[in-house]
Simulated assay, not measured.
Amino acid sequence: MSQDLNSLDDESFRRTVRAFFAEYYPEELRFPKQRLRWAEVKPWFMALSRKGWAAPGWPVQYGGMGLEPAKLIAFIEEQEKWGVARTPDMGLTMVGPLLIRHGTEAQRSQYLPRILAGEHIWAQGYSEPNAGSDLASLRTEAVEDGSDFIVNGQKTWATLAQDATHIFLLARTEKSAKKQEGISFLLVDATSPGISVRPIRNIAGGEDFCEIFFENVRVPQANLVGERNGGWKIAKELLTFERIFLGSPKQSQYALARVREACALLGLERDAGVQDRLTQLELDAADLNALYGRFVQQVKRGEALGPDVSMLKLWGTETFSRIADLLLDITGTAGGLPGDIPAPAGDSEEAINVLTSFYNARPATIYGGSSEIQRNILAGQVLSLPN
């Protein structure tokens, strides 16, 4: 099946994907206003799993679709266009590819089939209260004890960790080494004694993120991925790949559509000040789309992404933030109301939702590496500026 898909021309492939989405994806879940929980998207994930489409980027030999880079990008773009909700996909996008590349055969046999079957749901254990943007300063420790590591510490901003069955984390295994060189990458069963998860309620009332506490948690040394003290290199590899998707223009394009709708409903289509700001942001989004296209072509050619991909994450999230700010500004005092705001003019039954974009834009410039970190990467690793 995967070979047939790869052999299709681009438009035929996209039509095939859209037809599957139209038939099996729940209409009521299109373009969700907030991140959905596992129980809400599990039926959709299982439909993907039965089709063999749960892991479009994995090789066929490991149960994936085996899509070549161009088809993988097209698959993701069609998901965004159809408004497909993101599943709890850390296992698919991070743990799976990591184990395929760096794991042992035993690790691949144990974890990959269960990720595809929806039996294992993974959360990320990277950031800590005093090690977010400066991740290499993490303090969570893993101390050897016989055939195990004993893990103690705390992680925060773990997306939907309350639904996770497993956690992949970075822990310090060598205190005397340079901070980047004393970190290891571990796979942890979330039901292990000593683990507690506490959701963090955000300003919108959601609980998308969690804190995770580890108190004398035993983790088999067989769950070490890669070399001991070699976890930083693995973490950088995952973050680099993540940034091309965090910089997708679709988020900004969707928010721009909401601004245009609001302008029409509020009679601001001829307001020179509003239209000037909107035009500037449309040009910013066009620049973002062009930049995204450049990195997509790199992926399609099978080339590794370099540190310059930080430009994409930086420009994408900050453009989205500026668009969300404009939407808030043009709706005035009504923009501070949560949920759908009825249109103020005429007999229209249309409504405007303002705060969803604003809330989503706030953390976007932080997760996946803050804007400040992206600028430091560009300054040091791309422009070779002095520290």
Rank of each mutant, 00 (worst) to 15 (best):
I212C: 01
F245G: 00
E211G: 05
A47S: 13
H120V: 07
F185V: 07
A255N: 04
G336T: 03
D145H: 12
H102R: 03
A54W: 10
K42M: 10
S348N: 07
R243L: 14
E27C: 00
S321I: 03
F13D: 02
G226W: 02
G316N: 02
G369R: 01
S357E: 12
F214E: 12
V17D: 04
S384K: 12
Y359T: 09
D4N: 10
V225G: 03
P43L: 11
D276A: 07
R243M: 13
K313W: 05
Q154T: 14
D287Y: 03
V217M: 10
Q251N: 02
A379N: 09
T333N: 04
K178C: 02
F358D: 02
E144Y: 02
E372M: 08
G230Y: 08
I330K: 04
I366C: 06
E144L: 08
A70W: 12
A264D: 01
T365S: 07
A324D: 04
I76H: 03
A334Q: 11
G125S: 06
V188A: 09
G182W: 13
G335E: 10
E242Q: 15
V217H: 09
F185Y: 11
P220M: 06
E40K: 12
I366K: 12
N353E: 01
L138T: 02
L328T: 01
P199G: 11
L67H: 11
E80R: 11
A334N: 11
G339N: 12
E174T: 14
T87A: 11
L288I: 00
E68G: 07
Q154I: 14
R260S: 01
G316V: 04
T365W: 03
A39S: 14
L378A: 06
N289W: 15
G63C: 08
R15A: 15
L160D: 03
A55W: 00
G267V: 12
I244Q: 14
L238H: 09
R35T: 15
L92M: 06
P199E: 00
S147N: 01
G103S: 05
I73A: 14
K175E: 08
R277Q: 06
D329R: 03
L48Q: 11
E23D: 15
V95W: 03
C210A: 14
Q107G: 08
Y62D: 07
G91K: 02
S7K: 12
W58P: 10
S348M: 00
R14I: 09
I244W: 04
K250N: 04
G267Y: 15
A255G: 01
V219W: 02
P193R: 08
Q381T: 08
R258H: 10
K155C: 03
S248E: 09
I352A: 05
K81H: 07
E242H: 09
A361L: 00
R201N: 05
S371T: 14
A379D: 05
